[in-house]
Computed example of a mutant assay.
Amino acid sequence: MSLAPERRFGPCHRGVLALETALYLPIKRFLETLGFAVKGEVGGCDLVALREGDPPFVVVGELKLAFNLELVLQGVDRAAACDEVWLAARISARGQGRENDTRFRNLCRRLGFGMLGVAPDGAVSILVSPAAPTPRRDPRRRSRLVDEHRRRRGDPAAGGSSRAPIMTAYRQQALTCAALLADGARRPRDLRPAAPDAAKILRGNVYGWFERLAPGLYGLTAAGEAALRRWPQLAAAAAGPPDEDPGPAASPPHESLPAC
């Protein structure tokens, strides 16, 4: 038996919910309206609710002042001992709590956990039902990951980087164009053997590295020269023979662009 995803229970506690114990009574009364017998601190669980049957339906509730990872880990620990796990916490007054984080909600859905939010006046609402379907896979996002992985030459970006610009496949091809233009102006078709998307990259000029000197003729800007100095080894490698067939045309990177 799963609780209805839209069910709300009205005010049952006035004032600020400053302690985890202050959440207990609103949650207890909420579950009692659904036919459960609720008791607190049973077997290390914040609350255990039973609905009679053969066997009885067992719900374990864990309470925290805010939704966080520790609350989820507690739910994981309790899951094997019950039929449903419900995580309950205060609803953020500013709307910036984890209850509004799609990633957190999706995590609970994948684990099969319910989420109960307690408002400052004690009103309880179901944020996620344990019966809610798990998030569906995103085939377009998956395809983009596979495509970007296959396009990159070597492994130019260390995992965990956050401050340095990411060396995407698009940036690698742009560096290839810049390295070849360092010797003088050229046409896109001259760069195509090393950079199949040269025409698109030169016209788009996402990073400001290139300038159009004449119809169909491009040169390197000061920003492009600075990029070659910033990534000299990568520029040299990019200008070499490709590791493999680059496939269809690359798209500009979905990232914040650096100055060079």
Score class of each variant (00 low, 15 high):
V72M: 06
A259D: 07
L87Q: 13
V60C: 05
A178K: 13
V16A: 07
A49H: 06
L63S: 02
A239C: 05
R144F: 02
Q172W: 10
C108K: 07
P26D: 12
C260R: 12
G224V: 09
P258G: 13
L228N: 09
R90H: 12
G117T: 08
G97C: 02
A214Q: 11
P120I: 00
F30Q: 02
E255H: 14
H13R: 15
D147E: 15
A119N: 02
R212A: 11
P252A: 15
R152H: 05
C45L: 07
F113K: 09
A178D: 07
E6D: 13
G247Q: 13
G117Y: 07
V16H: 05
R144Q: 14
L73V: 14
K200C: 07
D147R: 10
S251D: 11
A214T: 09
F67V: 04
F113A: 05
V59T: 03
E225W: 11
F30P: 00
P156G: 13
Q96I: 03
C260I: 03
T134M: 06
R186P: 00
A226Y: 01
R8C: 07
S161C: 06
P252Y: 08
L87E: 04
D147C: 12
P241E: 15
R171D: 10
Y218L: 02
H13G: 03
R94G: 05
L127E: 05
I91S: 01
G112T: 09
A214S: 12
N100W: 07
A249P: 02
R7W: 01
G40M: 04
A185N: 09
M167G: 00
R186N: 03
P133Y: 04
W209L: 05
A199G: 09
A37Q: 14
P215V: 13
L111V: 13
R90Q: 11
I166K: 12
R142E: 14
T134C: 02
L257F: 11
S161T: 06
P196A: 15
I27L: 15
L34A: 14
D83E: 12
P165E: 13
L257T: 10
D243V: 04
K28T: 06
A22P: 01
P165N: 14
P196E: 15
L228S: 10
E6I: 11
V72I: 15
T102N: 03
W86E: 02
L31N: 02
R140S: 11
K28Y: 04
E20I: 06
G97V: 01
D190Q: 15
F36H: 07
Q172N: 05
E225L: 13
H254Y: 11
Q172S: 07
P130R: 01
A79F: 11
L71G: 03
L217P: 00
H254T: 07
I27Q: 04
Q233E: 15
S92D: 13
P26A: 11
L31C: 08
E70W: 10
Y218I: 00
R151Q: 14
L47E: 09
A237H: 05
V118G: 00
T21M: 00
S251I: 02
G15S: 12
A89I: 10
Q233Y: 03
R105A: 09
R94M: 12
A4D: 06
D197L: 10
D155V: 13
A236M: 12
L234P: 00
A158H: 11
S161Q: 08
E148I: 05
F104Q: 12
R136V: 01
L111A: 10
R142N: 03
V72S: 05
R141T: 08
D155M: 04
F57P: 00
M115L: 14
I91L: 14
